[in-house]
Design a protein around this nucleic acid. Structure first.
Lengths: 343, 343
DNA sequence: TTGTAGGCGTTATCAA
DNA sequence: TTGATAACGCCTACAA
């Protein structure tokens, strides 16, 4: 339909300069054994003719794509975009391109994506598992072919595939311990409707802290829900309807905690005097809601950087980055007014 | 180092079945003229042997990559992750892969990325320009080769490249008009330190509304800044130090508006009685801060979907999606307590 | 320092 | 319905 410019190849350049395509190829890729003079002519002519190297062809020949795949449950959160931002910063420095797909927390889609990534011959893979994923067989083809795979956030224990995450048990333990120290005894835990590994870890941290403080675990204080702000509001209603009113809420993420906090306030509950509230993630809303939300801070950006760096190291056959096969990033308890009952 | 499985090619399958590679290829890609019987044998054997098609080779041969590039200023915002999420939903349905890069609002990096994308032979490109980008020459190679390019959010007017955005002039006009209707006369405008096209449009909307209401434009009420929450706090201090106190603030984004609002409150200003506040974007924090923030809503997810759909249509030679070359998405003024002085 | 030639794994054309 | 063959554009032994 249009008059499109023709693709320029190394052969076109070669013909114009009366040299061989091989020399052109070498000249273009800075091969040492090429005359500086010819090299300059090659580069200049390439520029003039508007030559653009065809990575498809060179990738096929070199059997590597310079593409890294990243699979996440859902892009649509500031936490994820921070991670990806961190990943991108490392990979673009190392001259890799990033192909992103989201599984929408659907395991079938995750399987498909994994296959597509393989077919595209990604050089490496970064994976945060879908919420329901319980095994990693669909990634075995990568392992078998020696394509490095690094898990992050929602990891899977695997001999050859390192994982980067935080210690969710400990972090949740610390939150709960802090609430107990503030004098709370009936602590509601708002968690996921279906326990992922991450949710389970936090659940266990919560339980352990209770145990260590001789507070009996009470299943009726656990609220299973989805994890949006509105779900937090619903949780607030459940809390308001409990026969014996709790004195604290520890939600598994900030969105949920904030929704809950705002709704409790709306119903005349004083935060933290009547009910203390804590969340997880240190999203921006945690420091906007009033009172500010006590939460757990861990940097998505950093996690992305670390995971990507491990991957790059593996691609370069530097394998000593991770001694153990799981790298635990630091996380911090951020204490703010929403849980501060004592002065 | 490891014992890695060998790559299976169509030749391996062909040899095993005593047929030609051509037939295998046809069988695998559902070519009509292949015996159902042989086809089944081919598919089965491929499965057995663990064959995985090599897109690199196929792409080279077919001269298309099934990859769409997307270039954004910064991934690191919920707005952007919404957009990408929308883009991904459309593209994955249309069987395209997505390569993402961020320019970090650096024009040199944007040029490099564009080249890399071209070298990777993306089939199409989605671009939100870097903050400082003022021309689009680095995308001309795409246009020349007939590779469809769609701008979104931060667009560039171009004959062949449609843009998807909102009407920033009108939206800002509406915000300002609303503030004026609430009785405000000295309205501070917090905008970007350096006016991008988007910022300029909003600026003009603001000015026009003043004009139409016979309020003189006052340059001393304009605050140029970066656009984070902390910058909003700083802006608050500037406002507090103004000789004559303003009665409203219209910030170019929510983060800034929220930071400003909170800081003003901290200094004893009543919102909206003393100073009304409005933002832009309807980020989550707008409905968390107290009082809730008046703002402009436009859905990133939808913008991503629309831009991607236009691109896919172009790839399929359906060009009538966009009559004009610029598609304006709807945006809505969301009026909340932070600006509601009249009941 | 340069050229020749072959192949990376597919697909498209043509002939059988 | 199938097979032989040639390309897609690049890289790399090997030879000159």
């Amino acid at each position: 339909m249009n008059i499109l410019e023709k693709e320029i190849t190394i052969y076109d350049i070669a013909r114009k300069l009366n040299i061989s395509a091989a020399t052109v190829s070498r000249g273009l890729m800075n091969h040492p054994s090429v005359n500086v003079n010819t090299k300059q002519r090659i580069v200049e002519t390439a520029d003039q003719m508007g030559y653009r190297s065809n990575h498809l062809a060179s990738n096929l020949r070199k059997k590597r794509s310079n593409i890294i795949g990243i699979i996440v449950g859902n892009l649509n959160s500031s936490f994820m975009s921070n991670i990806i931002s961190g990943v991108d910063s490392v990979l673009s420095k190392a001259n890799y391109n990033l192909i992103i797909s989201q599984s929408l927390d659907n395991i079938d889609k995750e399987v498909n994506i994994a296959q597509a990534m393989y077919n595209n011959r990604v050089d490496g893979l970064l994976v945060s598992l879908a919420y329901d994923t319980e095994n990693a067989e669909h990634f075995e083809s990568f392992v078998k072919r020696g394509i490095p795979l690094v898990y992050f956030d929602r990891t899977f224990p695997h001999e050859q595939c390192p994982g980067v995450a935080i210690d969710n048990v400990k972090a949740a333990y610390d939150v709960t311990q802090h609430l107990i120290e503030q004098g709370c005894k009936r602590i509601v835990h708002v968690t996921a409707y279906r326990l992922s590994a991450v949710a389970l870890d936090r659940f266990n941290g919560y339980k352990q802290a209770l145990l260590d403080n001789n507070i009996p675990f009470d299943e009726s204080l656990i609220i299973y829900t989805h994890l949006g702000m509105q779900d937090g509001e619903k949780a607030a209603h459940q809390i308001l309807n409990m026969p014996e009113r709790p004195d604290a809420v520890f939600a598994i993420n900030d969105a949920c905690a904030v929704g809950c906090l705002l709704e409790l306030k709306k119903h005349g509950i004083n935060i933290p005097e009547d009910i203390a509230v804590a969340g997880f993630n240190n999203d921006r809303e945690a420091s906007i809601v009033e009172p500010n939300l006590t939460t757990v801070n861990y940097k998505g950006y950093e996690m992305g950087e670390v995971a990507a760096q491990i991957l790059v190291d593996r691609l370069n056959n530097v394998t000593d980055t991770v001694t153990d096969n799981k790298l635990i990033l630091k996380s911090d308890l951020i204490i703010r007014e929403s849980s501060l009952r004592k002065k």
